[in-house]
Design a protein around this nucleic acid. Structure first.
Length: 964
RNA sequence: GCUGGCGUAGCCAAGUCCGGCCAACGGCAACGGACUCAAGAUCCGUUCUCGCAGGAGUUCCCAGGUUCAAAUCCUGGCGCCAGCACCA
C-alpha cells in the first residue's frame, strides 16, 4: 500500500472512517459539545485549492475537539440562492469550453450536461461535487446535515425566519433606488454581468441638484457632484441645440433635458410638461441660489444631454472643462460673464503628494493650472479633460478649504453636505445615475428607479446594533484584531434591502411572494437549521411538518409546536437544538468580515437569548496565485495554479493540509508555491520513514521504559513540554505553532535523541505512538498509517484521545543539563570556525563548586535588568561557602553584569555538569571530528593540559574550552 | 476618498498585542561535507560583516521620539494590498 500514490492510500482511510461513522454527530447528554461550521460556498463553479484552505482548518479544529472526547457537530451545505447557479447554468448553455471540459472529466454524459442548464440542477450538482471533494480532503463532516438553500425544507425554514423577523420588528418598508430595465424589470448590476450585456462595472453616482431661478419663476435645474462650488458659478451651460422639458414637482416647474425629466420622474415623482426650445432661453439671466448672484446662459458642446440634467453650472475657477469652454467663448459673450473668475477653495500645499503638487504649479485659478499642466487645448481632448477634472476634484475634496461665504475656513469635505441641504430647505434632492451606460441583456438601457415599497432588514437600528456590539465583547475571535474592527463595521451598517424582484434563486418573501429573499439575508441563521435538516434527511420529519409553529417551538421554545403527529420527534428536535447551540466557531474567508459575519451576529442577536449566542469566529485569509491575485481570477501571470485534482493526486490531502497550516499563519495570504507543497509532502514521508525505522528496532528485552539515562529523561521531558505547548496552541487556535511543533520540532527531537545515543526502544515506541495521535488533526491519513505501526489494527487515530503532556514524565533538571551540551556545541562550533587546523584534542574544565553557589546569588541581586554589585557582594559575604573566594567574586559577578542569563543555570551542580559532559564525550568527538575529548574539574587542571590557564574562565553551564 | 490590512535578511515567512534570553523560529534556494562510478534521494553543516579563542560591529520600509534597553511602544512620512453595499 505504501507504494501507491498518497491519494489512493488516503481513500482507504476515508472508507475506514465512514465505516465507523466518525463524521456523524451524536449528542451525548453530559458530554461537552463542539459545533463548528464554515460559511457555506455558493455554487458558482468548481472549487480550487484556495477554497480548501479554510475548510481544512475547520476539519482540523473539529478533529482536535473530537479527540478531546467532545461530541462534535461539523455540518456543511451549499448556498444556492442568488445568481451564482444561474450564471453557471448560462455558461453551460453557452458552451463555455472550460466548464464543459471539467464536466466531461467527471464522467458526465451530454444528457447530464444538458440538464445543468437548469440553475436548480446545477446548484445541486455542484453541491454534491463540493461535498465529494471535502471527503477526499479527509474532512469528517455530518452528511445528513447537507442542505441546499433551494431545498423545500430550507425554504420552509427561511419562511419562518422572515415571519419571525417581521414579528420582532426587524423588517421595515421604505423607498429605495434600484437598477431597472424598462423591458425586463429589476436587474442586477455587477461585474459578472449575469443580467447585462454591458456596463457591469458601472457605479451608482449621486448628483446633488442645484436650482437656478429664471425671471419668470421657472427653474433651470443643474446636477453636480460638487455643490460647494455654487459660490463660484459664473454662468450656466445649456445644450448646443434641442429642447428642454418641463418637470413639475412639488408646486414648482423645472427645466431639464428630456431624458433627465424621465429619470427625475422615476426617482422623485412629479410630472412631465411641455418642451422649451433651448435657443429661446439664451438671452435670460438666472439667480444663483445661496449667493443671490445673477448669471448668464450660454450654449456649449460640453453639455451631454444624457448625463445629469442637461443643464450645467459653470465654475471655471475649479472645473477644467468649464475653464476650457469659457476660453472658447466669443468675445461678445465673455463680456456677459460675471466679471471675475476667482477661486473659492484653497488647497494647503502640505497635504499634497509630489504629483499633485506638480499639476497645481503655475499661475492662475486651479482649473487653469491643471489645464496647463496636462496641456489641454480644447474640449476635444475629452480623456484629458476627464483626468484633469478627477484629479482636481480629489485634491480639493481632500485638502481644500472654503475661502468665501459663511463656511470660510472650513474643509470642503465637511461643508459639502450642509450646502446641499441649504439648496432645498425641505431636504437635499439628488439624482442617481450610472457612471457608464448599462445595457440589459434585452438591449434596453438600464436606469435607476425608485422602489417605493422596498423591505429592509433594519440593521441601522441603534438598539439592534448595541445588542450585537455587546455580544461581540463576549466572543472569541481569531485573529483577535477582528474584535476591534467589528464595532466600526457594525456602526457603518445601514438598513439593508432584504428582498428583491427579478429572476434569481431563493425563497419567496412570506409577506409578498412576488419578492424573493436576497442571498445575504437567507444565510444568517442557517447554523440552527443544519440541526433540523438531519431529521429531514433521516425521514423523521417531512417538509409539511416544518410549520412556523414547529420552528417557534424548536428554536424559540414558544407555543405548542403545531400539530406535528409525532411529539417525540418534536421534543428531540428541541433538545438537539439546545444541545448543539450555541455555535462554537463560524469559520470563513476574509471576504466575509464586512457582510456575512456581521449579519450572522445581527440575526442571532435578534432571535436568541444570550446563552445561545455564537461563541467565536475564525477568519482565514486566501491562497493567491503567483502574482498575488485571487485564485478565481483568470489570466494568471507566471503560470496557472494546477487544478485541485492534480494537486491532490500528487501530494495527497495531507500534503495540502500541512502546506496550508505550516507555510504561514492562517491570517495571511499564501502565494501558491508548488515547491512548498512538495516539501510538505516530503516532510510527511520523512516522518513516516522515521516511525517505520523505530518500528524496525529490535524488540526491547525488558518491557519497561525506566528513564535511567540522562538522555532518556531529557527526551521524555521535551516530549512533555512540546505536547503541553501543542495543546495550548490548539486551544488558542494557534495553528502555525501546532504545525511547527508537531511537524518540525518533534522530528528534530527524535533525531537529536538518536544522535545523542538515545536507545530506549520502549520509550521510543511509546513516543512514536503518541506522535501518531498528534498528527491526526492536521494530517489524518498519515496519522492512521503511523499509528498502525504501533497499535493492533482496529483502533483509529481519529478516534484516539489527544495526548496530554502527562503521558511523559518531566525532569526539569535534565533540560538544564542538556542545555549545557547544546551551549557547548555552539561555543565549540564558533571556535572551530576561526581555528585553522583540525584540533587533536578537546579539554573541558567544569567550573569550581563555589561558582555554582555564587551564580545562585545573581538573580536575586538583579535590579532593573542589571546586576547590583553591592548587594551581590553583601549576599556573598554572608555565605560561609563563598567567603574564601570574595577576592574573585567581583570579577566573576562582572561577567553577568549585562547578561542576565544566570537564572538558566540555577540548580545545576558541578558534579552533575561533569557527569553529563563525561557522558557526552563520544558524541562530541564524533560531532566535531576531534579524536580525544576529556573532562576535568577546574581545580584539578594543570598547566600541562591547560597551558594558557584558560580553565579559570569556566562558569556554571559554560565549561572552559581548550582546543589543541 | 472611506474602512481595514501589510512592509523582517536572495525569496516565502514567524516574532510586534505583553520592550530585554532576537543576528531574529521555520521553509525555499544556494554552497560545502558524508554516502555514491555518477546523478537523484537521504543525512550533517554553512549562508549580514569582521575576527587564528568562545568576541565585536551593523541590521528588521524611512525619519524622529520614549527607555538602562526597541523589529516590538509613540509621532510623522513613504510604499503595497483588499473591501466599499444588495454582489456572494
Amino acid at each position: 500500500m505504501s507504494e501507491s500514490s498518497p491519494a489512493v492510500r488516503e481513500q482507504h482511510w476515508q472508507a475506514a472512517w465512514r465505516a465507523r461513522g466518525l463524521g456523524r454527530a451524536v449528542a451525548v447528554v453530559g458530554r461537552p459539545k463542539y459545533y463548528i461550521l464554515f460559511a457555506y460556498p455558493g455554487p458558482s463553479g468548481f472549487q480550487h485549492v484556495g477554497h480548501m484552505r479554510g475548510f481544512s482548518y475547520a476539519d482540523s479544529f473539529a478533529r482536535y475537539h473530537r479527540m478531546r472526547g467532545e461530541a462534535v457537530f461539523f455540518p456543511g451545505g451549499t448556498h444556492a440562492s442568488g445568481l451564482p447557479a444561474i450564471t453557471f447554468s448560462a455558461k453551460v448553455a453557452r458552451g463555455d469550453a472550460d466548464i464543459l471540459a471539467e464536466l466531461r472529466s467527471r464522467g458526465l454524459s451530454e444528457t447530464d450536461i444538458h440538464r445543468l442548464e437548469v440553475p436548480e440542477e446545477a446548484a445541486r450538482f455542484l453541491g454534491e461535487d463540493y461535498w465529494n471533494l471535502w471527503e477526499r480532503f479527509g474532512m469528517l463532516m455530518d452528511r445528513t446535515s447537507h442542505v441546499t438553500t433551494i431545498d423545500a425544507d430550507y425554504q420552509r425554514f427561511i419562511t419562518w425566519q422572515f415571519t419571525t423577523l417581521k414579528a420582532l420588528g426587524r423588517l421595515v418598508q421604505k423607498p429605495y433606488f434600484a437598477p431597472y430595465c424598462p423591458r425586463s424589470g429589476p436587474v442586477s448590476v455587477d461585474p459578472s454581468e449575469t443580467d447585462l450585456s454591458s456596463g457591469g462595472t458601472a457605479e451608482m453616482v449621486t448628483y446633488t441638484l442645484v436650482p437656478f431661478t429664471l425671471p419668470d419663476g421657472r427653474i433651470l435645474l443643474t446636477a453636480t457632484l460638487r455643490p460647494e462650488t455654487v459660490y463660484g458659478v459664473t454662468n450656466l451651460w445649456l445644450p448646443p441645440s434641442g429642447t428642454l422639458t418641463e418637470w413639475a414637482f412639488e408646486g414648482k416647474t423645472y427645466l431639464v433635458s428630456p431624458s433627465a425629466a424621465t429619470r427625475l420622474t422615476e426617482q422623485l415623482g412629479g410630472t412631465r410638461g411641455g418642451s422649451v426650445d433651448v435657443g429661446a432661453l439664451t438671452g435670460s439671466k438666472v439667480t444663483v441660489p445661496i449667493t443671490g448672484a445673477e448669471v448668464s446662459l450660454f450654449q456649449s458642446s460640453l453639455v451631454q444631454p444624457g448625463v445629469g440634467t442637461g443643464v450645467v453650472m459653470s465654475v471655471p475657477a475649479h472645473a477644467p472643462a468649464d475653464w476650457v469652454a469659457v476660453q472658447a467663448l466669443a468675445p461678445s459673450d465673455r463680456d456677459r460673464l460675471t466679471k471675475d473668475i476667482r477661486p473659492i477653495i484653497e488647497v494647503s500645499e502640505s497635504g499634497l503628494g509630489p504629483s499633485d503638487r506638480q499639476v497645481l504649479q503655475g499661475e492662475g485659478v486651479p482649473a487653469a493650472r491643471v489645464v496647463a499642466a496636462l496641456a489641454i487645448k480644447d474640449l476635444g481632448d475629452s480623456g484629458l479633460v476627464q483626468e484633469a477634472t478627477a484629479r482636481l476634484y480629489r485634491i480639493e475634496m481632500r485638502a481644500g478649504l472654503m475661502t468665501v461665504g459663511e463656511y470660510r475656513g472650513e474643509p470642503v469635505a465637511t461643508v459639502r453636505e450642509r450646502i446641499a441641504r441649504q439648496l432645498f430647505p425641505e431636504g437635499a434632492r439628488v439624482l442617481r445615475e450610472f457612471s457608464e451606460k448599462v445595457i440589459c441583456r434585452c438591449g434596453e438601457e438600464v436606469t435607476i428607479r425608485r422602489v417605493p415599497d422596498q423591505w429592509f432588514l433594519a440593521y441601522g437600528s441603534s438598539e439592534w446594533k448595541s445588542r450585537v456590539i455587546d455580544q461581540v465583547q463576549r466572543m472569541g475571535f481569531h485573529p483577535r484584531e477582528y474584535r476591534d474592527e467589528l464595532p466600526g463595521i457594525i456602526e457603518w451598517f445601514e438598513d439593508r434591502p432584504a428582498v428583491r424582484k427579478g429572476r434569481w434563486l431563493g425563497t419567496p418573501f412570506p409577506l409578498d411572494p412576488s419578492w424573493t429573499i436576497e442571498p445575504i439575508a437567507d444565510s444568517t441563521f442557517y447554523p440552527a437549521y443544519y440541526i433540523i435538516r438531519r431529521f429531514v434527511a433521516q425521514g423523521e420529519l417531512r417538509v409539511d411538518d416544518l410549520t412556523n409553529e414547529f420552528f417557534d417551538y424548536v428554536f424559540l421554545g414558544k407555543g405548542s409546536g403545531g400539530n406535528l403527529a409525532n411529539r417525540e420527534v418534536l421534543e428531540r428536535a428541541r433538545r438537539e437544538f439546545l444541545y448543539w447551540y450555541p455555535v462554537d466557531i463560524n469559520l470563513g474567508g476574509k471576504e466575509h468580515k464586512r457582510v456575512h459575519f456581521p449579519v450572522f451576529l445581527y440575526v442571532h442577536a435578534a432571535m436568541l437569548p444570550a446563552e445561545l449566542q455564537p461563541r467565536g469566529i475564525f477568519i482565514n485569509w486566501w491562497m493567491t496565485n503567483y502574482s498575488g491575485d485571487k485564485l478565481s481570477k483568470k489570466d494568471q501571470k507566471g503560470g496557472a495554479v494546477p487544478p485541485v485534482d492534480v494537486v491532490l493526486a500528487t501530494y495527497g490531502a495531507d500534503g495540502l493540509r500541512l502546506y496550508y497550516s505550516l507555510s504561514a499563519s492562517p491570517f495571511q495570504d499564501i502565494q501558491w508555491e508548488e515547491t512548498q507543497c512538495r516539501n510538505a509532502r516530503a516532510r510527511l514521508d520523512d516522518i513516516l520513514r522515521m516511525l517505520t525505522e523505530i518500528r524496525a528496532l529490535p524488540e526491547p528485552t525488558f518491557g519497561t521504559d525506566a528513564l535511567t539515562a540522562h538522555i532518556d529523561r531529557w527526551f521524555s521531558s521535551r516530549l512533555h513540554a512540546i505536547i503541553h505547548e501543542v495543546r495550548r496552541a490548539w486551544d488558542d487556535y494557534d495553528l502555525r505553532t501546532v504545525a511547527q511543533d508537531t511537524y518540525v520540532a518533534l522530528p528534530t527531537l527524535f533525531r537529536r535523541y538518536s544522535a545523542r545515543g538515545g536507545s530506549n526502544t520502549t520509550l521510543l515506541r511509546r513516543a512514536a505512538e503518541t506522535w501518531s495521535r498528534l498528527l491526526s488533526p492536521i494530517t489524518p491519513h498519515i496519522a492512521e498509517e503511523a499509528r498502525g505501526l504501533f497499535v493492533p489494527s482496529g483502533t483509529l487515530a481519529a478516534e484516539g484521545i489527544f495526548p496530554t503532556g502527562e503521558e511523559f514524565a518531566s525532569h526539569p533538571i535534565s533540560m538544564v543539563l542538556e542545555q549545557v551540551v547544546e551551549q557547548l556545541e555552539e561555543d565549540v562550533g564558533s571556535l572551530l570556525k576561526i581555528w585553522t587546523k583540525s584540533p587533536a584534542r578537546l579539554d573541558l574544565f567544569v567550573a569550581a563548586p563555589w561558582k555554582y553557589r555564587a551564580v545562585e546569588l545573581i538573580p536575586p541581586s538583579m535590579t532593573g535588568g542589571r546586576l547590583d554589585m553591592k548587594s551581590f557582594m553583601e549576599r556573598a559575604r554572608q555565605d560561609p561557602q563563598l567567603v574564601p573566594w570574595v577576592g574573585e567574586l567581583a570579577k566573576f559577578g562582572a561577567e553577568y553584569r549585562k547578561e542576565g542569563e544566570s537564572s538558566r543555570w540555577v540548580g545545576l551542580s558541578a558534579s552533575e555538569e561533569r557527569s553529563i559532559l563525561d557522558e557526552a564525550r563520544p558524541f562530541l568527538s564524533k560531532r566535531f571530528h576531534i579524536p580525544q575529548v576529556s573532562v576535568c574539574p577546574e581545580e584539578e587542571g594543570t598547566d600541562t593540559t591547560d597551558p594558557g590557564s584558560r580553565r579559570k574562565r569556566a562558569r556554571p553551564g559554560h565549561p572552559a574550552i581548550v582546543l589543541s
